[in-house]
């Protein structure tokens, strides 16, 4: 074997290792592929946040491209993304909220629904209401089935009720341009 080539091997291994580790510096450890991609929204029967007599099921997602936004008034980042969601809604996007409350502990249930509705209305009056309606995930069972890790998170659901994108973190113009715009346009064409 050629001597120089032989002694260059460690250098190449080193460069390979360096590239691998350097990439790791910029990767987001919170980002991992959702297991539900290309799957239908899990089955559920949950009340509407503002009218708890009314029930929603997974069928509400059929027929329309939907942005399902997981949020709560206690979530600071959600308050920051709300005005941008309002803008998206004004552009004609169909946004559905998946609301869950931190203080309603399924084991105890401290807060009344009226109190939650009051808080939500207060937030709307300050920041606007981008939602067509809100699904009230009382015991956070749907969140668990959807693989929600915390608010805010947004799902892009196609006309057949299939999940096509799962974004962890807030929605803003940059995220929309990089992550959502292309898929959204594709779904509109379908």
């Amino acid at each position: 074997m050629n001597k120089t080539a032989f002694y260059l091997i460690p250098l190449f291994i080193f460069i390979g290792l360096l590239t691998f580790l350097y990439q790791g510096l910029f990767s987001n450890p919170r980002e991992h592929e959702s297991t539900l991609l290309e799957h239908s929204v899990p089955e559920f029967v949950l009340p509407d946040l503002m009218d708890t007599q009314k029930k929603h099921t997974q069928d509400v997602f059929i027929g329309k491209i939907t942005l399902l936004n997981v949020w709560g008034v206690w979530c600071t980042t959600c308050a920051i993304e709300l005005p941008y969601l309002k803008q998206l809604q004004q552009e004609g996007k169909h946004i559905v909220g998946l609301y869950y409350d931190q203080d309603i502990d399924p084991d105890f249930g401290i807060k009344t629904v009226q109190r939650v509705q009051q808080e939500v209305n207060q937030t709307y009056s300050q920041l606007g209401n981008p939602y067509a309606f809100n699904i009230f995930d009382v015991k956070r069972n749907l969140s668990l089935d959807l693989g929600v890790t915390g608010a805010p998170e947004t799902y892009l659901i196609d006309k057949q009720g299939k999940i096509r994108l799962h974004h962890i973190g807030d929605l803003n113009p940059r995220v929309w341009a990089n992550k959502f715009a292309a898929i959204y346009a594709q779904l509109e064409a379908e």
Binding site: H32, E33, S34, T35, L36, L144, D145, L146, G147, T149
Partner: peptide, 8 residues
């Protein structure tokens, strides 16, 4: 759990 949150 894996079905919902992946191998992670």
């Amino acid at each position: 759990m894996k079905q919902r949150y992946g191998d992670f």
